[in-house]
Amino acid sequence: MSTATEVICAPQQALEALRAFAADGMCGRCIPCPIATRQSIAMLERITSGEGEAVDLDRLTRVSTELIDAARCPKGEEAAKKLGEALASPEFARHVEGICGSGACAALTRYRVIPERCTMCGACQEACPRDAIEGDPFIAWRGDNKPYVIRLEKCDGCAKCVAACPADAIERVT
């Protein structure tokens, strides 16, 4: 599941395109196309959830080239070609390395509090479903108020904190 942010990355785009093909245009009456589509969807799901490996990229590339010959009809060929075009993007390799540059893949996205902007209001902590944010609310007469901190290992990139912060004090890490 992605974020509500209005961005999309190349792997997600490829995934959605294949899902749409699988749901509507793909007839399933030849052997290679439905299997290639399903395996490609599985691989892209792994890639966009941070579990992609380099070998997945090899496999996807192979699908995009070989399915052109193997598919029985132009629809399958088209799907293969579109996949091939998408794969040209360097974003795929970066996803395998664990980075979704556009923040579209929650699993590969992390946020951090910008310390100098944090007003320690606590809204982010309340919003976080993962208990990933540490910190205490601002107390005026105390001198040791510290900015809130997002624990990267617990953050799953859902960006609820971003939406909740009134001070624009949370930025994307990857």
């Binding site: 699988a22 007839c27 399933g28 009456r29 439905p34």
Partner: peptide, 9 residues
């Protein structure tokens, strides 16, 4: 016969 379509065939 083939039933359903796509990947569910």
């Amino acid at each position: 016969d083939f039933m359903e379509r796509g990947m569910s065939t």
